[in-house]
Nucleic acid binder design. Structure first.
Lengths: 204, 204
DNA sequence: GGCATAACGGGACTCCCGTTCCATTAGCGG
DNA sequence: CCGCTAATGGAACGGGAGTCCCGTTATGCC
């Protein structure tokens, strides 16, 4: 544990070539280490070795595993995924559910998300980075719901964000706790359940 | 990390007074430590200090933080909570949702559940203990759904376990990821959403 | 292109986690 | 009640994570 909280990794006086290169190498290496060993075994010295960077640099700029994960998460949030537009609420929600499912079962992204969620339970900055991440993702998909309201598929006043979250929730529940298979039928059921509840006016 | 995997804590040749007393003291101390510092800071030496037990004993009998958590979880599973029987599906599911909400927001149980879920992502035995735990909880509440089927509130062939899980999922999603408030309206909405989806035949 | 200094890297040092060894305690069977 | 031995606990040891010090590198600015 560091004696003092280091500066956020993004705040640097010289964000030039070397610093940026090192940040990229460290985040890449941290991702690899997280996929291989999980968050609880994340060792900054190991990350430095993988990134071919001095240990001191990693300890100084990030200081804790959770800080690295928070930075990694902000990096992931930058890459955006386009939402679907199938013309029906159910189609859009199914597309969203399948995307979430594919992400969580991906051999690299799955362990990464696990690590990120674990880090968020331990570190407030990682928790905030996680919330920022999902805020972006949800905002990207909320238009599916507002369009459905416009089309008359859903009652007016439906909380779009809540519907999108309702699609993800059962999938994350399986992912983190129950261990039940995360297959496509499960994804479709999650989407259909959210749609049915929204149609019934639960999220109004 | 121990050189070899120690025996499961329950398997002891002399489960008599001293051994049982030490197990109880260690689990109590581990719970306190988890509530205070979270799983990632769980230190077996600290647990031994709190339990007023030799470090060696803790390292020998459990070996890893995750093993202690798994044992603690089996201990928690032993205490059962009675399910509700309000006469209607919606009433029963709301009672369940409110119980889950109260558990997760409880100043002791909340951090404990967080720790347990984190441990499950890192250790297979903790993960299995977690699945056992929820299997018991879900089996206790599934009759609410089968009764609703009998009463004709739900279509025949509805997957009772899946409905109960659908009630919990949005609450755990808030608890672990979104950080949105876990208040009673949220609990009721989770119950209503599960009921609406079940009525629509999504879980058939 | 040259200067000031932010940022990096190597090496040594410290501290504490986890292990091992062995003496002591206390269940459990006779 | 008496031994046998499982189980506990104290103490010392080894190793690795995290810190500190200081010399080196290269970035941003003039």
């Amino acid at each position: 544990m560091p004696a003092v909280t280091p500066e956020p990794a993004a705040v640097v006086a010289r964000p030039g070539g070397r610093t940026a290169r090192i940040r990229a190498a460290v985040l890449q290496a941290a991702g690899d280490a997280l996929v291989a060993d999980g968050f609880d075994r994340l060792d900054l010295a190991d990350v430095a070795r993988r990134a071919e960077v001095g240990r001191t640099t990693v300890y100084r700029r990030w200081g804790t595993p959770a800080a690295i994960v928070a930075d990694l998460l902000d990096d992931m949030a930058a890459q955006s995924l386009p939402r679907a537009d199938t013309g029906t609420l159910r189609g859009d929600l199914r597309a969203n559910a399948r995307l979430v499912r594919r992400t969580l079962t991906d051999p690299r992204q799955g362990p990464l998300f696990r690590a990120v969620i674990v880090a968020a339970t331990a570190d407030p900055r990682a928790a905030e980075a996680l919330r920022r991440f999902y805020a972006i993702r949800i905002a990207e998909w909320a238009p599916c719901v507002t369009q459905a309201v416009t089309r008359g598929e859903l009652p007016a006043g439906t909380d779009a964000d809540e519907v999108i979250r309702a699609v993800s929730a059962p999938l994350y529940y399986r992912f983190l706790m129950s261990g039940d298979p995360l297959d496509e039928p499960a994804a479709d059921r999650a989407a259909d359940a959210a749609a049915a509840a929204a149609e019934a006016g639960v999220y109004r």
